[in-house]
């Protein structure tokens, strides 16, 4: 090989210098995480022996749950209680869906004037800021114990999350049909009904189903403070330290949650099929619903 054209023979073996800025960031962020973690541990009142004995304690409890006492739990009506949690979640989702659907139109920036949009958004944010357990606690205090209080609490919270998600769905529609309705002389309400509603329906319905999945978990938890459902059963069995029964309750809950998730995911896939929600939107959706905030 002749070297007549090559003016820089050494560059092939010479590595480019590593940039400094990313490394500085890396160290800075690591330091922040380390400091935050250390500060957090100091507040948790952990001694070394507690830390080392904890996994053993947890494992012991897990071991004592085996074999689960299914027969006893079925006698105590655990299936009915899990179903009650499902009913609570469903009614809560329906309440949330029915109230949030019209409100989400009013909160969307492309179809709603600013003086109504801003208060609506703040309403959604305000509702989302209060955990549903605390909503349930207040409602329970006023109405007395029972599943309806739980359903109401879940419904109120769902208005906030569904309203936010649905209004973002409305904001991402194609504006063409709205213009068409307006050009044909339609009023605002007609353009909502004939231009916006058909476009957002698949997305919004899939949000409802997603919310239902989340609400099943939430309603199971609500039972722990007396709002009906499987949570109360778990708490009482744990308080009496009947671990085989606890195992059975957990098993039935997990089966119910997993089967509802699977079923709902199937239906959602059918609904979205052919819609705009492409691959990769799955995570955004999951995140949005877990936190009530959207990535976009």
């Amino acid at each position: 090989m002749t070297d007549t054209t090559s003016t820089e023979p050494d560059t092939s073996t010479q590595r480019p210098a590593r940039p400094v800025a990313p490394r500085v960031w890396k160290w800075a962020i690591s330091a922040v995480i380390l400091v935050a973690a250390t500060w957090s541990i100091t507040g948790l009142d952990v001694s070394i022996d507690r830390l080392t004995s904890a996994p053993g304690d947890a494992w012991n409890i897990l071991k004592r749950m085996w074999p689960p006492a299914f027969a006893e739990e079925i006698d105590r009506g655990v299936i009915g209680k899990v179903l009650e949690s499902v009913y609570i979640a469903w009614i809560g989702t329906v309440i949330g869906a029915v109230i949030s659907l019209p409100l989400s139109f009013l909160a969307a920036s492309n179809v709603s004037p600013v003086w109504i949009r801003l208060p609506m958004r703040q309403l959604f944010n305000a509702i989302r800021a209060v955990p549903e357990l605390i909503v349930a606690m207040i409602i329970l205090a006023v109405t007395g114990l029972g599943p309806w209080a739980g359903a109401l609490a879940i419904g109120i919270h769902s208005v906030g999350t569904l309203g936010k998600l649905s209004s973002e769905a409305v904001e991402s529609i194609d504006a063409g049909p709205i213009e068409a309705v307006e050009a044909a002389g339609g009023r605002w309400i007609s353009s909502m009904r004939w231009a916006v509603f058909p476009q957002v329906l698949p997305t919004v319905v899939s949000y409802w189903l997603f919310r239902f999945e989340i609400n099943v978990r939430a309603s199971a938890v609500l039972g722990m403070i007396g709002a009906g459902g499987v949570g109360s059963e778990l708490v009482s069995q744990l308080n009496f330290r009947n671990f085989p029964e606890v195992g059975a309750v957990l098993f039935v809950t997990v089966v119910a949650v997993v089967s509802i998730d699977t079923l709902s995911a199937m239906v959602r896939r059918r609904i979205i099929q052919g819609g705009t929600g492409g691959e990769g939107s799955r995570n955004d959706e999951a995140l949005a619903d877990l936190t009530g905030i959207s990535l976009r």
Binding site: D45, A54, A58, V221, M224, G231, L238, V246, L250, T253
Partner: peptide, 21 residues
């Protein structure tokens, strides 16, 4: 993931005692 977060909390309260830990 199918076990709700507060179920975990209650389980661990039973296992390792009441508190932030």
């Amino acid at each position: 993931r199918a076990v709700p977060d507060l179920f975990w909390a209650k389980l661990l309260v039973t296992a390792v005692g009441v508190g932030a830990f």
